[in-house]
Write a protein that binds this DNA or RNA. Structure first.
Lengths: 163, 163
DNA sequence: CAGCAATAGTTTCTGCTTGCAACTTACCTG
DNA sequence: CAGGTAAGTTGCAAGCAGAAACTATTGCTG
């Protein structure tokens, strides 16, 4: 990933959408609330007691996640005190990010295989580590990656490995 | 990803290493500093002018990333004013997380293909989207995933897709 | 060797964010 | 209608983020 496009680092950074992603998800509790959603939490009080987060902060974060279209806020018809928060497609799309972060924490921070594990529903085998891959599925490491400007990209319409 | 292990959600959350990962990387500038490192920045002044971060915050974040073994701090032998910050293996291991987050931002926030793109050095084709995969490489979506306790995991020693 | 510039911070002060605890408002249940 | 639950809001104290100025080494130049 060395010195390919070296002097255009400035524009490189400007065009990167990492800051945009972080604006949506970079705040202190956002990822834990998201994890809660993935784990089946739907209501304010559930998040509150599960995460131990302050109520005002939780209200603020939920509102922001709704504002960013990561969650939808829906009053429950059968009990009109209750509000349901559910993941949107945009929220679900954060799954690879969240799993990657969790796997990293497992490998390098807690250093334990983690008791309840995500498994493939089909065969109950644990999921694979999340990796950066080439179009053909080869795992790419640090040395295999280069930044390229659009005109330098070899963009043969080939079968994509995913999506 | 529905109602499999439903009542053990509490312990489930406790054993999750996402909080641990967020303790290391969850602060405001950490991911952007990491991106800088991946992009070839090595010195204090480079990070400072590139990111526009306040100097005291940068000093604090660099120290913390070094403390967490994500970066190494090394005085330059040839110019003893300079200090080099370089990624450790642990830092490099955040690549999938960072790419996943960036791709999410690209797809759902900025909604543009992003000008300089990460390509496979071998064939200069853009990398594939980061996904959650089964051991055999099948892409797993929300419906395909289940939380399982270790005893319920079918753990046939099979070829891993990666790592 | 004197003086200036570069590098990597530290300090100080100000303002926003976080967090706790108590309060509120709407709704349901007996 | 009394009491409890759900989803917030408000007020206040502490801590963290940010801008600007300052410092301490080290290197460069004449």
């Amino acid at each position: 990933m060395g010195g390919a496009v070296r002097e255009s680092l400035r524009e490189l950074a400007k065009e990167c959408s990492l800051p945009a992603a972080l604006e949506a998800m970079g705040e202190r509790w956002s990822f834990l609330i998201l994890r809660g959603s993935f784990n089946g939490l739907h209501h304010f009080e559930e998040f509150q007691s599960e995460l131990g987060i302050a109520r005002n902060i939780l209200a603020n974060r939920l509102a922001r996640l709704v504002d960013k279209d990561i969650l939808v806020r829906r009053p429950c018809p059968e009990d009109r005190r209750k509000i349901e928060y559910r993941l949107t497609d945009k929220g679900y799309a954060l799954l690879p990010t969240m799993v990657a972060l969790r796997q990293w924490g497992e490998r390098w921070e807690t250093c334990v295989p983690a008791s309840p594990v995500l498994v493939d529903a089909r065969d109950r085998r644990p999921i694979a580590p999340v990796t950066v891959q080439a179009q053909d599925g080869r795992v790419l490491q640090k040395g295999d990656l280069v930044w390229a400007l659009p005109e330098d990209v070899f963009d043969e319409p080939e079968m994509r490995a995913a999506e």
